[in-house]
Design a protein around this nucleic acid. Structure first.
Length: 939
RNA sequence: GCGGGCAUAACUCAGCGGUAGAGUGCGUCCUUCACACGGACGAAGUCGCAGGUUCAAAUCCUGCUGCCCGCACCA
């Protein structure tokens, strides 16, 4: 058993690493293949990039998943949380190329094979970082099953999937216009295109107009463009067929000024918009998506003018060899020189950029591999319609459906070296294509040995789409696949709903014949305090490890804004986190548990989680509270008997706390089941702090001080049980702290129902209905006790009565139950009000003058303070109380006076109102009597 | 342009038919023997605006206003 000096305050940096080490040396989180699949529970982790390091988004995802997973495990499910990383094609290649650049070589100097070897080397060296960081969060994954998308078995699955889809005609190669990233030197899919917002008030470009001369010299036609350099690839000018300005020109030709080409004027109602520009538009089918469609409609030639490096090719004539942006200026100058320029105006356009490199994409005509999506989408749509996969929050269903029904074919080939190489070979002999599970040595069609493999690799998302089943051994029908597929839950950020979730769903249905997951939980994005997305540019990035371990201001700012100067970074940081004024010393070590509890406390429908450090601090305080309450309780519960021998609770206080526990258990289980971790954590927080600590512990104190009585023994057993249950409730959210505290509890309290001692809290049963029962009468009686204590405290606070331990509290009530409660709880009342004596007086007695007065739960509370009473203050607070009660009772009376209400509203609602009205009237009457008495004294 | 979401206390957010809740913050008090990363008490909200449905609306419906996010946006 771990030991510690149990010092205060709670120090997560001492406890958490110790538990991490214990977990890693254990087999606690090992799932077993086989058994009843209905008892299995599994989540496939969304694999982070090997290149990545932990960010707040990961922390959120790990928190949610681990909480759900630990809850399932404690609930007796055969639980698998399978970890892994993906190879992140572009990102990884960029990282390694950057490293090579520092050594003065390029990947082309190295050659493909050596480069790939180099990436593996890099992966062996730095690829494990993200796993280490996962461990810091307390993630209870099954480490021996960890997968990497480039592992041999995973690669085999990818190849199998590709070949099958090809054989089924669902993968094909086509020469189409694609998005080319010059910086990344690869094609990307349409989903990876990032569109800048075009703000007309902030032009980011210019609209340049120039004239084409009609070939017969009879005039000119003016077109406008934001990309003048593309005019060397123009193969038509389109006008609207109904446009009176140009109608007559359709069918005629213009002479290209720079290349030897005549181009036609065509009528195209889809492309040309008479209200835009001059109404005439140049058509460059090989370099613009709209023009491409027009080109296909009109049967225009498609002339590629670009090299892959962004320079213009031979088709560009005198502009050949120039970079696209250099050529743009050159073309403009040349047009001006030729007298064809017709002016320019500032213009705002939505640049299409590469999501990863952010360079402006070039539409380019290139042969690529595609997956035909429509046939795959249909079963997925049906699965969601039929509820075989359910989204949470459910609003995402609509978004999902909208995208799925308008789905486009997926371009899956990438011009990279790092990744799964396309298993296609082209025959130089017959021109055929061989797609094969095994590397072929000859063309299957003509037998020629002159075959060459397609150099491209597959989109990383293609392998990710196979993740939930490939990680379980597919294409083999392994025991793991049979036990854990379909997985129970897919939990990830809503931003990759299309990239990943939709594609997994389609592939799972297609290859395994069932959905890959039963439920999908989509979480939001962690933002800074002001709601801005975290980015180094904004200087508002917070490294979760800094929150967990603590960090100096220098470290925080360095992580927030990268390489920016400290002062500048600090300024940005303070802007992003305005409430953090006392940040001069940096972050304290909040600990992983506090970070987790904080992240879990947000409802899933929040699209943004604004990082509020003060709230995080509140949860660190909560950790400290748990620690100290446990420490204190342990001094009293050291010798409790086994839970199975626990006698029935002796007092209302015990029945009350057990009832509250029962309610909390219900709320916690419901919260997890419904993916409302915010409700589960709130219920546990409420129970532990306000009910267990503020009330029950305090109610216990006078009992414990009375020596080893039967009452004390009973209270000790109840306290032990509640505390032990509370740690079990807490465990999915705060694994380290709860495990540590639980390990210190007496063995007897930790025994499972069958009498055995669980090896650790993570393997103990999650609290359920058998752990505590609701007790409404006890709740009502303790409610009375609390109301009287609070009423007395309020009188003292408001009248400034400070005589600690010296006051007498007189209570008067005609209600026998209330009287019994107060008699039984006398010691508690005295302690919690800090009074020296509690006197029960008959309601029929004349009220003593010179006593502070209040009414709570139908009980009159009198605190005699003759000679010290501040008549003005007393009278004022009585007046306030009367006003408050009268206002409420007037409203109630009015409503009860409404015949429609009384006849139509449910009887219990009306009865409740009547009772409340009676209580209020009674209260007002008593308060008024007190005012009268005050008047007598004053007069 | 199409679709979706959000507007509740100073801040961050719950509640989604029975006359407002939490955390933080704020004010007053407390060196009470688990915890000042604590305790007690308190102040604080026309629940975006305007209509409608209902005995009853922050909660359901319609419209408006203001933010946010997808998709499509070409010269």
């Amino acid at each position: 058993m771990p030991t510690t000096d149990f010092s205060r305050p709670y120090d997560p940096s001492e406890v958490e690493p110790r538990w991490r080490a214990l977990e890693l040396g254990s087999t606690w989180y090992a799932a077993h293949d086989g058994g009843d699949p209905a008892q299995a529970f599994s989540i496939a982790i969304p694999p982070p990039n090997v290149t990545g390091s932990l960010h707040m988004g990961h922390a959120l995802m790990l928190t949610i998943q681990d909480s759900i997973v630990r809850h399932a495990r404690m609930s007796g499910r055969n639980t698998l949380w399978l970890p892994g990383v993906d190879h992140a094609g572009i990102a990884t290649q960029i990282v390694v190329e950057r490293e090579l650049k520092r050594e003065g070589v390029s990947r082309h100097d190295l050659g493909r094979e050596a480069f790939i070897e180099r990436v593996w080397e890099w992966k062996a060296r730095s690829g494990g970082r993200i796993f280490e960081q996962l461990k810091v969060m307390g993630s209870s994954v099954d480490w021996p099953r960890a997968k990497f998308t480039m592992d041999p078995d995973m690669s085999r699955a990818v190849r199998e999937a590709f070949v099958r889809l090809y054989e089924q005609g669902l993968i094909y190669r086509a020469n189409r216009l694609v998005n080319w990233s010059i910086k990344a030197q690869t094609v990307i899919s349409d989903l990876e295109v990032e569109r800048e917002e075009a703000d007309p008030s902030k032009p980011n470009s210019e609209l340049f107009s120039f004239a084409y001369l009609l070939a017969d010299g009879s005039g000119e036609i003016v077109v406008a463009t934001t990309r003048p350099e593309t005019m060397v690839g123009d193969t038509a000018i389109a006008v609207h067929p109904d446009d009176p300005r140009y109608k007559h020109l359709i069918g005629r030709e213009v002479q290209h000024p720079f290349v030897d080409r005549r181009i036609p004027i065509v009528g195209d109602g889809e492309l040309a918009d008479p209200t835009k520009g001059t109404g005439a538009v140049k058509v460059t089918p090989a370099h613009d998506f709209n023009d491409y469609e027009c080109g296909k409609r009109q049967g225009l030639p498609m002339i590629n003018i670009l090299n892959l490096d962004g320079t213009l090719n031979a088709e560009a004539g005198r502009f050949a060899g120039m970079d696209r942006f250099v050529a743009r200026e050159a073309v403009k100058a040349a047009l001006a020189e030729a007298g064809l320029a017709r002016g320019s105006v500032p213009h705002a356009i939505p640049y299409a950029r590469c999501q990863r490199t952010h360079d402006i994409l070039e539409p380019l005509l290139l042969p690529q591999w595609y997956v035909s999506m429509k046939p795959l989408a249909e079963p997925a749509i049906r699965a969601v319609e039929e509820g075989r996969t359910v989204f949470a929050p459910e609003e995402w269903t609509k978004t999902f459906m909208h995208w799925m029904t308008n789905i486009q074919d997926w371009c899956i080939s990438r011009q990279l070296w790092w990744g799964h190489q396309v298993p296609a070979w082209y025959c130089k002999g017959c021109g055929g294509t061989v797609v094969s599970r095994e590397d072929p040595t000859a063309c299957t069609a003509c037998g020629s040995a002159a075959i060459e493999r397609d150099p491209d690799v597959l989109d990383t998302w293609f392998s990710s789409a196979l993740w939930p089943f490939a990680t379980l051994g597919w294409p083999d029908a392994t025991p793991a696949l049979q036990t854990f597929y379909p997985t129970s839950v897919m939990e990830t950020g809503f931003d990759i709903l299309f990239f990943w979730v939709a594609r997994m769903l389609m592939m799972g249905l297609h290859f395994v014949g069932d959905v890959p997951f039963r439920r999908v939980l989509l979480h939001g994005m962690v933002c800074d305090e002001t709601g801005s997305k975290m980015s180094k540019v904004k200087g508002n990035v917070i490294d979760p490890l800094d929150l967990i371990h603590g960090a100096t201001l220098q470290e925080i700012v360095a992580h927030a804004s990268g390489s920016a100067p400290f002062d500048e970074g600090l300024k940005k940081f303070r802007t992003a986190y305005p409430s953090v004024s006392a940040m001069a010393e940096g972050f304290p070590a909040f600990g992983a548990d506090a970070v987790r509890f904080y992240l879990a406390s947000h409802p899933p429908q929040s699209r943004k989680i604004n990082l509020h450090l003060s709230r995080l601090q509140g949860y660190r305080d909560f950790c400290n509270k748990i620690w100290n309450a446990t420490r204190f309780a342990l001094t009293h519960i050291g010798d409790v008997g086994p839970r199975t021998q626990r006698v029935a609770p002796e007092s209302d206080a015990e029945r009350w706390i057990l009832s509250r526990l029962a309610y909390t258990i219900e709320a916690a289980n419901r919260g997890v089941a419904e993916f409302r971790l915010d409700e589960a954590t709130a219920a546990i927080y409420q129970f532990f702090w306000y009910e267990l600590c503020d009330w029950f512990l305090e109610l216990c104190k006078p009992v414990f001080e009375g020596g080893d009585t039967p009452a004390a023994r009973s209270h000790r057993a109840t306290l032990a049980h509640c505390l032990e249950s509370a740690h079990r409730l807490l465990h999915p959210f705060m694994p380290h702290l709860s495990s540590e505290c639980w390990s210190h509890l007496p063995e007897n309290t930790r025994l499972a129902a069958d009498g055995t001692l669980p090896e650790t809290l993570a393997l103990a049963p999650y609290p359920g209905a058998s752990d505590a029962t609701r007790d409404e009468p006890a709740e009502r009686r303790i409610g009375t006790l609390q109301a009287v204590i609070e009423g007395a405290r309020r009188i003292c606070a408001e009248l400034g009565i400070r005589a600690a331990g010296a006051i007498t509290v007189i209570v008067r009530t005609a209600d026998p139950e209330a009287r019994a409660v107060l008699e039984a709880g006398e010691a508690q009342v005295l302690r919690l009000v800090r009074a020296k004596e509690l006197v029960h007086a008959p309601v029929t007695d004349a009220r003593p003058s010179g006593a502070a007065f209040g009414v709570a739960a139908g009980v009159e509370i009198l605190i005699p303070i003759a000679g010290h009473i501040d008549a003005a203050a007393q009278s004022q607070r009585l007046a306030t109380d009367i006003a408050k009660a009268t206002k409420e009772s007037t409203g109630l009376a009015k409503r009860l006076g409404n015949a429609d209400y009384v006849s139509r509203a449910p009887a219990d609602v009306v009865a409740k109102d009547r009772a409340r009205l009676d209580e209020l009237n009674d209260k007002v009457q008593r308060l008024q009597a007190a005012v009268a008495l005050l008047g007598e004294v004053a007069g």
